[in-house]
Every structure is written in C-alpha cells, then in structure tokens.
Design a protein around this nucleic acid. Structure first.
Lengths: 113, 113
DNA sequence: CCTCCTAGATAGTGATACTAAGTAGTGAAT
DNA sequence: ATTCACTACTTAGTATCACTATCTAGGAGG
C-alpha cells in the first residue's frame, strides 16, 4: 500500500511502540517487520528517527549488544512510561476508529429538490 | 478527546471530504459538526485550511451564497475527482485499521530464559 | 454602542514521515 | 585483494499537516 505518509503520522509511533512491547528488539528488525506487515514503503531512516524520538521522550530503555552478523545492535524495551504512553495511544486510536466508523456509515442525503 | 493532533494528520482531510459527500455544506457547519461528533478541540481555522487545500487540489466545487444569519457562506460539493480521492482514502484507512488490529492482537512474548 | 453569533481567511509554529546520504561490520563471490 | 551484498545505525534537510493566533466582516439583541 502506497501513499500512507500522512495517515501514518501519529500512528507510526504507536505501531513501533506496540511492536517493542511484544519483546525486546532493534531498529533493523522493526523495519523489516513493518515491511513484511505490508508497510512496503517504510525505510530504515524513518524507523530510526522514530526510535530516537521515543528514546528522547524517555519511553524506552536502551542496550547496545554485538550482533553475530554485523555492527552492534541497539536493543530497545518499553519502560513504565512507555507502557503508559502506549495505553494512551490505543485509547486515542480506538476513539478515532469509532468516529471514522460513524462517518463512514453516514449516507448521502439527497439534496435534490 | 484531547491530544489527537498527530493522529488526525491525514485523517482529517478524509473526515471533511466524507462529510461533504453526505451533502452540500460549508466550513462553519462542518466545524460544529466535528465538535459535536467528539472532536472537541477542532477550531474553525483548522477546518478552513483543510477546505482551502481540498479546493486547491481540485476535489470540490465551490459556490458562494448569502446566509440569512451572517456573512456569505461558501458551499462545497464533491466533484468526481473528490469522490475518487475519497474512495482511495477509505481504502488506505481500511488498510491501516487492518494492520493496527493485527498489531494490537499480538501479545507480549515472554523473553525470560 | 457593545456583545455575541455567524462566517471566512491567513501568517507563523511545531510535529512528523520521508529523502538522501553517510558510516561501519561481516562474509561471500570474483 | 577487491568488490558486492547484507546487516545496522545516524543525520541534515524537506514537505505536509494540524494548530495557534489574529484579523475582517455581517447581522441580531441588549
């Protein structure tokens, strides 16, 4: 799916947080997970900037450990603040999904006189 | 609901288009419709900028007509391009909702050894 | 005259995803 | 040995978008 850029604003952060909440992981893995999920146009740069932002917000714990395949990996885990933030995110998302469903269900009222 | 700003990026455009598709309307009415829907923090300035953007994209037909209550109203209707654009928007939205549901369903896999 | 409601426009700001380019480690192919 | 491919992270710059704040303006009521 293409042209999701604007819709992803705000959601991508939650998407990344949610994936990290499933277990410790790192940027490169997250990127390929998202591509496999169907977000084909996501590139590494995008994911890394999200991760750095989440880290600056104090939502993640970070640990660098060597990889057996390449450079060091930067492993992330959710901390308590991250879990709270993620819970709030899902509430907002549920609100939006609910309102969008209401809107989508509304039919065209014929204004022809 | 507060703090929806980032999540609304990309969706607000579709929300406004969808409402217009239900019948000819104008900015002030749209604003109050959205507030009533639950988007309490939406203000007029935001809606007008969305409308001007949609107009520049060639998705709306515009007609100014006097109001019996105040200044002239600027009435909007979807044109064919707008209808196409809206259909594409709903496909993108459905894609995102689907992926988010998959993500939300994934449980924490316990990494404790 | 003043206030409130109706109705629209716009310059400036901040947040975000994306573009594009770079650095670096490892291993396989040539 | 050199090149290529894959792994892994960083960052400067850009475009888009919602929001802030302020402005103009018409009409109704006090």
């Amino acid at each position: 799916m293409q042209g999701l850029t604007e819709l992803l604003k705000g959601s991508l952060e939650g998407i990344v947080l949610q994936h990290i909440s499933c277990g410790e992981t790192y940027g490169y893995e997250i990127t390929h997970y998202l591509i496999d999920l169907g977000f084909e146009d996501i590139v590494e740069g995008t994911v890394y900037t999200v991760l750095l932002r989440l880290e600056k917000k104090g939502l993640l714990t970070v640990e660098r450990r060597p990889s057996d395949l390449g450079p060091q990996r930067k492993f992330y885990q959710l901390n308590d603040a991250g879990a709270d933030y993620l819970a709030t995110f899902w509430k907002k998302w549920a609100f939006l999904v609910d309102k969008m469903a209401i809107l989508e269900g509304e039919q065209k009222n014929d204004n022809s006189k």
